[in-house]
């Protein structure tokens, strides 16, 4: 006799905890064949705002951590993802309708991206910073710093886990904290990624994952005054021009939508897009 399986309850990931949507709403996640897989939380405006509060609270600690420490924490995500690969293969196969080999290749790529970005944590400042030879008795240094709270609309089509990882990893490298709206139709691997993050030394609130309708949630994030930057990488099917207009009210930094298999491809420019260059002039004594 077959053992009766215990299905997982898929919830949001906010502030290091796994709450249900405060709205009490769920939506059905279906397999590629149309079979019921799970009820995912249908995140609301309040959930998005709670996530921003959590991200803001976590910012000081994450941005203030040493670059070496951030690099190790990001690397640890790769370690734990490797260990949970079977679960992700299941979720990706059923949601996306791909075979085990394709699902496995997607996970490989996602893991490798964590490793690649982890390695940048203590290097991007050297590559993007400068000592400036100013005409005067000053020690003049420009260094990139994290922009702050970054709201991301994760890629909506294609590879659900890889899309999410490709969008959040670069924002985390510099020390930003993130609120991400997951892939609406294939959210399961994203929620499970939250479980990986929760157990891999990523402080609570550094990554917040909201599932539900990007069209419903994105406007609240775009107009939220405590969000510093907006990555619209997965917003190509939304009215993203309106989101960008709304983001202009508080002069958020905005990245436009991308499409295709190489959306959010790994690049130093994705790290630097969510940094601010600070220039400090230190007076030198005249001897």
């Amino acid at each position: 006799m077959n053992r009766l399986a215990i299905p997982k309850t898929y919830k949001l990931y906010i502030g290091g905890k796994f709450p249900r949507s405060e709205s009490g709403r769920v939506y059905e996640v279906l397999s590629h064949k149309g079979d019921f897989l799970a009820n995912a939380a249908k995140g609301s405006r309040k959930d998005a705002r709670d996530a921003v509060v959590a991200a803001r609270s976590a910012l000081g600690g994450w941005a203030g951590a040493t670059a070496y420490n951030r690099g190790q924490v990001l690397y640890r995500i790769a370690e734990l993802l490797e260990g949970r690969r079977a679960q992700f293969i299941d979720e990706i196969e059923s949601c996306e309708g791909v075979n085990a080999a394709a699902a496995s290749a997607q996970i490989d790529e996602a893991i490798d991206r964590w490793v690649w970005y982890a390695g940048w944590a203590d290097k991007y400042v050297q590559v993007a910073g400068n000592a400036n030879p100013v005409s005067g008795p000053f020690f003049n240094l420009s260094v990139p710093e994290p922009t702050g709270v970054v709201a991301i609309i994760a890629p909506q089509g294609g590879e659900s886990l890889l899309g999410l990882v490709s969008a959040i990893a670069p924002a985390l490298v510099a020390g930003n904290t993130v609120v991400v709206v997951a892939n609406e139709l294939a959210p399961l691997s994203g929620i499970s990624l939250g479980e990986v993050l929760a157990t891999s030394d990523v402080p609570g609130g550094v990554v917040n994952i909201v599932t539900g309708s990007p069209a419903e949630i994105a406007p609240w994030l775009a107009s939220h005054a405590d969000v510093n930057a907006l990555d619209l990488v997965g917003a190509g099917d939304l009215d993203w021009v309106e989101l960008q207009i709304s983001a202009a009210d508080t002069l958020k930094r905005v990245l436009p939508p991308e499409s295709g298999a190489d959306a959010a491809a790994p690049a130093l420019s994705r790290i630097l897009a969510f940094t601010e260059v600070k220039t400090v002039w230190h007076t030198k004594a005249i001897l």
Binding site: E109, D112, R113, W116, G236, L255, P256, P257, E258, S259, G260, A261, D262, A263, A264, A265, P266, A267, S269, R270
Partner: peptide, 13 residues
């Protein structure tokens, strides 16, 4: 147009 690591810059749609 390569998505593998390390890749060139991203191209907006």
């Amino acid at each position: 147009g390569s998505r593998s690591i390390p890749a060139a810059e991203h191209a907006p749609v």
